[in-house]
Design a protein around this nucleic acid. Structure first.
Length: 116
DNA sequence: TGGATGACGTTCT
DNA sequence: AAGAACGCCATCC
């Protein structure tokens, strides 16, 4: 169990907590909104740490980007992935036959950053 | 201090 | 369309 919580993680957790139920954001989007545009991998690291200490962060609303229009479950642990999908479906997020999410419909950061 | 690491992302095959 | 190759950059050791 990691005891240490690097400073940047707090910003990531703050941003993730702002994602409303029923919507998702990509790692890259979280990093960007937290002020670290190219540190998506650190968001992943911070989330992995939540495995040991949830702290009320809706980790399941953070998904891996697959292009700019779709996202997929990025978690490596199969059980965790299933858990994430279950939680998201419980909030109304839909997955296609390949287990991907349409960011046009459920992408939080995209919905507020893209205007057209 | 240097090199390895990673729940990622983009680009090139 | 699927997979490999890089790029990224705070942490770890």
């Amino acid at each position: 169990v990691r005891q240490k919580q690097p400073v940047h993680w707090a910003a990531y957790y703050r941003t993730i907590r702002r994602i409303p139920p029923g919507q998702v954001a990509t790692y890259g989007a979280i990093a960007a909104l937290a002020g670290q545009p190219r540190s998506s991998r650190h968001v992943a690291f911070a989330l992995k740490a939540l495995e040991y200490d949830e702290r009320g962060v809706p980790w399941h609303r953070v998904v891996g980007a697959e292009g700019s229009r779709r996202a997929r479950i990025a978690i490596k642990n199969p059980a965790g992935g299933a858990q994430q999908r279950m939680l998201l479906e419980g909030e109304g997020v839909e997955f296609d036959a390949r287990g991907r999410i349409d960011l046009e419909r459920f992408g939080w950061a995209r919905a507020r950053a893209t205007r057209r």
